[in-house]
């Protein structure tokens, strides 16, 4: 798969402060890429460099294999974390203006806008001023403005903040639809759990450095610990945990007396589960047997801790 965007040892300094330090990333085409890390890690600086709002002091960005060109802004859509529109400008006029700035001819922009307004059922807002709309309504307009010029690369900084659950879901579906149509998407957020299920690739940014990146499934595989949770309804009178303890390390053990179910977390020496399952099914009915997969959040914390221990 070709890369949509490649960052090659990009660094950015503000005076003595290092905002980004030798960040190298590869963002594949037609995928959803998560740029994750706490506030102030350098995500927004990186995004601003892609949008050519600021420029790297070292390194370069390749957009579809070529160094980033000022004209490329027309092929990128950006929803900044700080959302904003002209308050006293009318919705339609404003959307037209902003998409014309992105290089869409007026007639074409008008046509596309009509489609989007119909899709979101916000046609009657056309002549309203932004200040007359609620925050959630303005966010919808902002989303439309971001995608109207049909960019090849879409960047969302904190995509779901400010949306209520219903609208967040609407936006999520729209983003997935755009991805289906071939758009590459970057999510940047500090709330890692909010995008975990959507991202195919991620990069973790911490204190201006990239500490981890790659395919999410690969990363998760690498961080597997061969831990499994088990829900077991015992058919024995004996304490199942005691029996199991002889062969398997039990990390967690809890008995639900009401349901008569034993909740266990087991630590296996490898990912070979045949024997364990055999053993378990001898003891009773296995309602659940599931690998404990670390969340991105856990992976992040673990990676940060490891790095700090190693200096």
């Amino acid at each position: 798969m070709q890369n949509m965007l490649v960052a090659d040892t990009v660094s950015k300094f503000y005076g003595k402060h290092k905002a980004l330090s030798d960040v190298s990333l590869e963002i594949p085409e037609n995928s959803i890429y998560g740029l994750l890390g706490p506030n102030g890690a350098g995500k927004t600086t990186f995004i601003r460099i892609i949008n050519q709002i600021t420029f790297p002091d070292e390194g370069q960005i390749l957009f579809k294999g070529k160094p980033l060109h000022p004209k490329d802004v027309a092929r990128i859509g950006y929803l900044p974390e700080e959302r904003g529109l002209y308050k006293s400008m009318k919705v339609g006029e404003q959307a037209l203006y902003l998409s014309q700035l992105k290089g869409v001819p007026k007639i074409e922009a008008k046509k596309r806008l009509k489609e989007w307004f119909d899709r979101f059922e916000i046609g009657p807002w056309w002549n309203k001023k932004i200040q007359e709309l609620s925050k959630g309504m303005a966010q919808k307009v902002q989303f439309i403005v971001t995608v109207l010029h049909e960019p090849e690369l879409l960047i969302f900084d904190e995509p779901f903040s400010g949306f209520d659950p219903i609208n967040a879901n609407l936006i999520k579906n729209e983003i997935l639809r755009l991805k289906e149509n071939g758009t590459s998407i970057i999510f940047s957020t500090h709330r890692m759990e909010s995008v975990e299920e959507l991202c195919e690739h991620i990069a973790l940014i911490h204190k201006s450095e990239k500490i981890l990146d790659g395919k999410l499934s690969d990363i998760k595989k690498a961080y597997r610990k061969n831990r499994f949770t088990v829900d077991l309804k015992s058919n024995q009178d004996l304490d199942t945990a005691k029996i199991l303890e002889k062969d398997i390390a039990i990390v967690h053990n809890e008995y639900d007396a009401k349901e008569e179910i034993q909740h266990l977390t087991l630590q296996l020496p490898c990912d070979e589960t045949r024997e364990v399952l055999h053993l378990l099914s001898d003891l009773g009915t296995v309602y659940r047997f599931e690998e404990v997969v670390p969340t991105v959040n856990e992976i992040f914390i673990q990676t940060v801790n490891e790095r700090e221990q190693h200096g």
């Binding site: 709002i53 802004v73 027309a74 990128i76 900044p80 904003g84 529109l85 002209y86 902003l98 700035l101």
Partner: peptide, 16 residues
């Protein structure tokens, strides 16, 4: 006004 309404970042991602 552009600063306080935070539209500035949207605009300068389109023009210098």
């Amino acid at each position: 006004e552009e600063k306080t309404s935070r539209i500035i970042e949207v605009i300068i991602s389109s023009v210098k």
